[in-house]
């Protein structure tokens, strides 16, 4: 797994596509684009969990808090999220 750390520079939530895109990085022009998107067969609990991660990213963006997004080494799909102590 890979951890991408940084400030949430931009967040897009699309109910129509049931996905969220998040740009994480130190500056607005130096970001990694990751996404959260439930997959077919995900349980209701998993879907709620992923929606909650989107909520956490929303909070982190407006408070300028750094996040650590965990995803596969060759995947941009966020599977877990961490907000470390400040």
């Amino acid at each position: 797994m890979t951890e991408t750390t940084g400030i949430v520079q931009r967040l897009n939530v699309s109910p129509g596509w049931a996905a969220a895109c998040v740009w994480i990085g130190p500056t607005p022009v130096n970001t990694e684009l990751l996404f959260i998107q439930p997959q077919a067969g995900d349980s209701a609990a998993s879907v709620a969990f992923q929606g909650n991660m989107v909520d956490a990213l929303s909070a982190a963006l407006v408070s300028r808090r750094e996040v650590v997004a965990v995803h596969g080494d060759t995947s941009a799909r966020v599977t877990s999220l961490r907000i470390d102590p400040a």
């Binding site: 520079q9 939530v13 699309s14 130190p26 963006l61």
Partner: peptide, 12 residues
């Protein structure tokens, strides 16, 4: 509403 975005400032 199809989608919502925030952020995207030129400073951080």
């Amino acid at each position: 509403i199809i989608g919502v975005s925030i952020g995207g400032f030129d400073i951080s």
